[in-house]
Design a protein around this nucleic acid. Structure first.
Lengths: 217, 217
DNA sequence: ATGGATATAGGCAGTTCTGCCTAGGCAACC
DNA sequence: GGTTGCCTAGGCAGAACTGCCTATATCCAT
């Protein structure tokens, strides 16, 4: 059990390096070099090809050639960002200049390496990327657990939660009831259901949970 | 009153452009161009000179030559970051390359412009920087107001707040008292003082405030 | 149409909170 | 030596919360 969870967290074993470059020689040599170090590698000759074949789920990082015919690296980066994907991107480039690198980093790329680069640097960035993915995954998992609980609330219950979070000075049944035009007794009932569904014991904990949830989700 | 506050928020009127470049010709021409557009400009021939003369307070942005003899731009950036200063930095460079620009942006620089650049681009980045400063200033002011309130709490009161925030499921006087080894009645007394000093009316609001405060401050 | 989920609302008893009062012990400061 | 501030703690009354019960109305799905 413990060993299995370690194995799943091992970046080399669990995550994939997606390599997008229009230069077949580079694809092959880089892929071989990474596979020799036990990385799982998938290669793509173009951004369009990556978009076609990437399932949007598999965790990993993207090694992306900046200057490719058709959709270039920056466009693919923007596309992935809009789609809400969470693949750290390491740009590699033959002819990219300062403005391109600046734009890429500003848009969230992890690094921007000029060819030729030392493999040790790339490996290092891949490890950084995988650590990032692990972090995001953990954070995401926490948020998802929260969302699952809040999803079990009815709309009326959510309304009451919203009111309490945005008006924490008016959390008594009397005040909430007045605001929603219902009896304080009914608010009592809803509050009890809310605490029960969220598996908590106090309004203080509700505020705490809801703020964490709203801040992220 | 209203006009004064607008005048203070006006970036051009209220904020300073700090220009650090070892090339006197560039210093003079850029400074003149910016002053013509009503920017307040201060020039420095070296990073060391800037550190000597900058008071650490005046809000504004830093236009920083990357490649200077002595302390270079990147080092000055790191120095300011360590000192906790909040000056957005726009790098300008004659010979900087991709790795330098990447490192600068990663370290938080707003942009990295290669000489020669169009003045319109620089102006645009200055405006972005000033907008950032205004944002940070507003956020800082809010946090400071919070800190001022929390600073009025005694250590025992803070202890109770801390416990309630980190254990929001145990916020009743009975539970807090048991945890601190004091009478529930005394916790009542402290709680009342806390709410009074923070000018709030409920524990829910306390949790909300304290979380915002702890998240930032 | 019958059952299930939801929203509404009340009764009642026990618990907790809140605001008001008092009060002793202790440390710091003038 | 007195004042001030803090921590401690209790009494008391009214308000609010909590958990248990019942109950009606509505809407939706089988």
């Amino acid at each position: 059990m413990k060993e299995q969870s370690i194995a799943q967290q091992d970046p080399v074993a669990g995550l994939t390096v997606f390599l997008v470059d229009d230069d077949e020689a580079i694809r092959n040599s880089l892929a071989r070099a990474l596979q020799k170090r036990d990385y799982r590698v998938e290669t793509f000759p173009s951004a369009a090809d990556f978009l076609l074949r990437y399932d949007g789920e598999t965790p990993g990082c993207l090694i992306l050639d900046y200057g490719m015919p058709g959709m270039n690296g920056l466009e693919l980066q923007a596309w992935l960002a809009r789609a809400g994907h969470d693949l750290p991107i390491i740009f590699i480039t033959g002819h990219g200049g300062v403005p391109e690198s600046v734009q890429a980093i500003k848009a969230g790329a992890l690094d921007f390496l000029e060819k030729p680069f030392r493999q040790s640097v790339l490996i290092e960035r891949i490890e950084t990327a995988f650590a990032l993915v692990a972090e995001h995954h953990a954070a995401r998992a926490g948020t998802e657990r929260l969302r699952a609980k809040f999803d079990r609330l009815t709309s009326r219950e959510m309304e009451i939660v919203s009111h309490m979070v945005s008006n924490p000075s008016e959390t008594s049944s009397k005040e909430v009831g007045a605001r929603l035009g219902i009896s304080p007794r009914t608010v009592d009932h809803h509050r009890a259901r809310i605490l029960e569904k969220l598996q908590i014991r106090s309004v203080a904990e509700l505020i705490s949970m809801a703020q964490h949830f709203l801040a992220k989700g």
